[in-house]
Computed example of a mutant assay.
Amino acid sequence: MQVRSGPLVRGAVALDPGTALPAEWDAWAEEPAHQVLLADDDTVVGAVHVALVSAEEAWLEGVRVRADRQGQGIGRRLVAEAEALARRYGAGVARTAIPVHEYAAQAVAERAGYRPVTRAQVRETRLGAGPIDVPYDAHVRPARPEEAAAIARRLQGGETLRAWAGLAPLGWRFRTLLVPMVKGLARDGRVLRTGEPAGPVEGAALFALHRDAAVVGLVDGPPSHVTAMLGTVAERARAGQVHRLVVFTPERLPLPRLDGEWTAHPWCPDGLLIVSKEL
């Protein structure tokens, strides 16, 4: 069986792993991916994506096997080849996320040596055209790059990262929260902080504005500060004609109501299970 790998070209192969994921999640990705293909007599029988999310961390996603070739170990071979590619680029750990209700996929990951690390909920709400009626009981402003270390310390000591074992999602790929990551996001205007201008960081949020949604990957702080930061992101989204807000949270973390009710993302209605393996 032939193994091929190269930069991901969406839709260029018969088995595009991206079809195993919501299309929007590919649009939210923060880094490019490689695709690994298995072919038998020039017929693609399996495919997977692998992305480096930091110098030492890899993310696997979208394993696909032709229906008539399932049950022949192709999925295991794909994962092994993706892990080998990640190791060649310096990764020492690989992770992926599986919908909690996908028990078969969880069993495949377990047989490949992946172990659960944490869980996350993905919730969304629609943003109407009128004013957002939320109390702004905290001073919210964009973070400066030179505040990255203080913000990282605040987040690392907070409830959200403790629940997520120190991992934070960018796009939807989880990786270790590091100061350079926070600094880069702050340079791009994608970090909010709360607290008095000359005082300590009391809360922080990491977010991105996309064409289809505003996505808050990580938010932590006192409840009133979380409300104020989500309200700020929502206002920025509506200013850009975006009327959907998506938030990643630990399990059972309440979210303040903005314009409407919060609903679960349809691809993972019961949440995501993040699994990890040392390479």
Rank of each mutant, 00 (worst) to 15 (best):
W172S: 03
A120H: 00
A109Q: 07
G199S: 05
R190W: 14
A165Y: 08
P135R: 12
L206M: 15
R162S: 15
V108K: 06
P180Q: 15
Q121A: 04
A107N: 10
P135V: 01
A165C: 10
Q121T: 02
Y136K: 11
P200Q: 11
Q106K: 05
L206G: 08
Q156A: 13
P131Q: 13
R144N: 10
R126P: 06
Q121V: 05
E110A: 15
G189V: 09
G128R: 08
A149C: 00
G166A: 04
V117G: 03
Q121S: 06
I151D: 02
Q106M: 06
G130E: 14
H101A: 14
Q156I: 05
E124R: 11
A112I: 00
V191Y: 11
R144V: 13
A104D: 12
Q121G: 03
G166W: 03
P131K: 08
V122K: 06
E196F: 10
R154L: 15
A138L: 05
R95G: 03
V122C: 11
E146I: 04
H101Q: 15
G203T: 02
A143L: 01
A152T: 12
T194V: 10
T176N: 08
A204T: 04
P135H: 10
T96D: 13
P142Y: 11
R141P: 03
R111A: 08
A165K: 14
K183P: 01
T176L: 09
R141M: 07
A129L: 11
D133A: 15
G157I: 09
V201Y: 03
R115D: 04
K183M: 15
R123D: 00
I151V: 15
P116F: 03
L167M: 07
A163Q: 13
R115W: 07
G130W: 10
V108M: 13
A112V: 02
V191E: 07
A143P: 02
K183C: 12
G128C: 03
A148I: 04
W164Q: 10
G195M: 08
L206Y: 12
R190S: 15
Q156C: 11
E159A: 15
R115N: 04
R154G: 12
A205W: 11
Q121I: 05
T118N: 13
Q121L: 05
L192A: 04
A109I: 00
L155Y: 14
F174R: 12
P200C: 09
E159G: 02
E110W: 09
R111W: 10
R187S: 04
R111P: 08
T176M: 02
P116T: 00
Y114H: 09
A97P: 00
E146N: 07
P131Y: 13
A97I: 01
P197H: 12
D188N: 10
G128Y: 05
R187W: 14
A148F: 00
P197Q: 05
R175Q: 14
T176F: 00
G189S: 06
G184V: 01
A186T: 00
V182T: 07
V179I: 10
V191L: 00
A138Q: 07
A129E: 11
